[in-house]
């Protein structure tokens, strides 16, 4: 005796019902999820770019550039970069002046560095007054000829930042990511 027809019918039914339920669910939750994602992204872009009235998305050479305009004048460009940190991939949102010579803002989108050490790049709990001191150093940092870091000392040049003591690798990783991607993105946008 073969019960193949029964198998086919039962599996088909289960799959159909499941598919239907999921389709309904998707139509209900997708807007919410997309909305949340958009908010996050916009928030990040807004944080790293100056005041503007319009943002234009341009994709080129693997980068998605968010160009910020104020009264039809390009005031800044933001794009997402990533690279290897100490033990995880660092994903950053980088905002630059139109000629890429100055960093307007930097935000860390995701990182899973050593807790309490590498994570200081995002939030340093030991510094009560300014937990974001490390990332804030990048504001208005000059990118030419290249960004560098110093250890256990205050930066003396306008292209220098101070590395986190004990988390030099993570600090160095960010500097390296910025240097390589700024160079590449420059080429992509044809800036000399």
């Amino acid at each position: 005796m073969s019960n193949t027809p029964k198998i086919i019918i039962v599996l088909t039914l289960i799959t159909l019902i499941s598919g239907a339920v999921l389709a309904l669910l998707d139509s209900y939750t997708r807007p919410k999820i997309d909305n949340y994602r958009k908010i996050q992204e916009n928030q990040a872009i807004a944080e790293v770019l100056p005041e503007n009235d319009r943002i234009n998305e341009v994709a080129k050479d693997g980068y998605v550039f968010y160009e910020a305009y104020r009264k039809h004048e390009l005031v800044g460009v933001a794009f997402q970069v990533s690279g290897g940190g100490y033990q995880s991939e660092l994903v950053l949102m980088l905002g630059l002046s139109p000629d890429f010579s100055r960093i307007i803002g930097l935000k860390i989108l995701s990182q899973v560095e050593t807790p309490g050490l590498g994570t200081k790049i995002e939030k340093d709990e030991s510094n009560k007054e300014d937990p974001g001191w490390f990332i804030n150093q990048f504001k208005d940092l000059r990118t030419l000829p290249s960004i560098s870091y110093v250890k256990n000392a205050s930066p003396s040049r306008d292209t220098e930042i101070q590395a986190i003591s004990g988390a030099t690798v993570s600090s160095k990783a960010i500097v390296d990511i910025l240097n390589t991607h700024i160079k590449k993105a420059k080429a992509a946008r044809g800036i000399e």
Binding site: V21, L22, L25, D26, T29, K32, I33, Y36
Partner: peptide, 9 residues
Amino acid sequence: TIADRFLAA
């Protein structure tokens, strides 16, 4: 999937 989408939303 239901749980995942609800949590995400």
